[in-house]
Amino acid sequence: VYKEIAITNGCINRMSKEELRAKLSEFKLETRGVKDVLKKRLKNYYKKQK
């Protein structure tokens, strides 16, 4: 499980701001904020899904 999260986090870290926004809107999450906030939001979402 932790390895999956680590791989997902690595992918998220390599995403551009536009990619992050697209992914967040896909999951109907808030898309406003600076890049670091968007990354954190997406990581938290994936963590809750596990």
Rank of each mutant, 00 (worst) to 15 (best):
G33P: 01
K28N: 14
K43T: 05
T8L: 06
K39A: 06
E4G: 12
R21G: 02
L38P: 00
I5Y: 13
L42M: 04
E26G: 08
F27E: 13
K48R: 12
G10M: 11
T8R: 10
L42A: 01
M15K: 07
Q49Y: 12
N9K: 15
L29K: 04
K39Y: 01
F27Q: 10
N44A: 14
K23C: 10
D36N: 14
R14A: 11
Y45K: 01
K17H: 04
Q49V: 09
F27H: 15
K28E: 10
E18I: 14
V37Y: 02
D36E: 06
Y46S: 08
G33K: 01
K43E: 03
K48W: 06
K39G: 03
E4T: 13
E26L: 09
S16L: 02
T8F: 05
C11R: 12
Y45E: 04
T8G: 09
N13D: 08
I5G: 14
L20M: 08
A6T: 14
S16K: 14
M15V: 07
F27G: 03
A6V: 14
D36Q: 08
K3D: 09
S25W: 09
R32C: 05
L20H: 01
K3C: 11
V37P: 00
E30Q: 06
N13T: 03
V1L: 13
E26V: 06
G10K: 11
I7C: 10
I5Q: 15
V1S: 13
K17C: 11
E26C: 07
A22N: 14
T8M: 10
N44W: 06
L42H: 01
N9D: 08
K3V: 07
K39C: 06
I7P: 12
R41Y: 01
L38W: 04
L20N: 00
R14C: 07
L29G: 02
K47M: 07
K17S: 07
N44V: 07
L38Q: 02
T31S: 12
D36A: 14
K48D: 07
Y45S: 08
G33T: 00
E30M: 03
K50M: 09
C11A: 15
N9A: 13
R41H: 00
Y46D: 01
A6C: 10
R32F: 05
I12L: 06
R32M: 04
V34E: 05
S25M: 12
T31H: 15
A22D: 11
S16V: 03
N13K: 06
K39F: 01
M15D: 00
L29C: 08
I12R: 03
K40L: 04
T31N: 11
Y2K: 15
L38K: 02
M15Q: 01
K3I: 07
R41L: 00
F27A: 12
K23D: 00
V34M: 04
K50A: 10
I7T: 12
I12K: 03
I12E: 02
K3T: 12
E4Y: 10
N13M: 02
R14V: 04
K48G: 08
K17N: 06
A6Q: 09
E18A: 15
N9Y: 09
K48V: 06
V1I: 14
I5T: 15
I12W: 06
S16C: 10
R21M: 05
L24H: 03
K43F: 03
L42C: 01
S25V: 09
D36W: 11
L20Y: 01
I5E: 13
K40R: 11
K50W: 13
K43P: 02
K47Q: 07
R32D: 06
A22Q: 13
L20T: 01
V34I: 12
K48F: 05
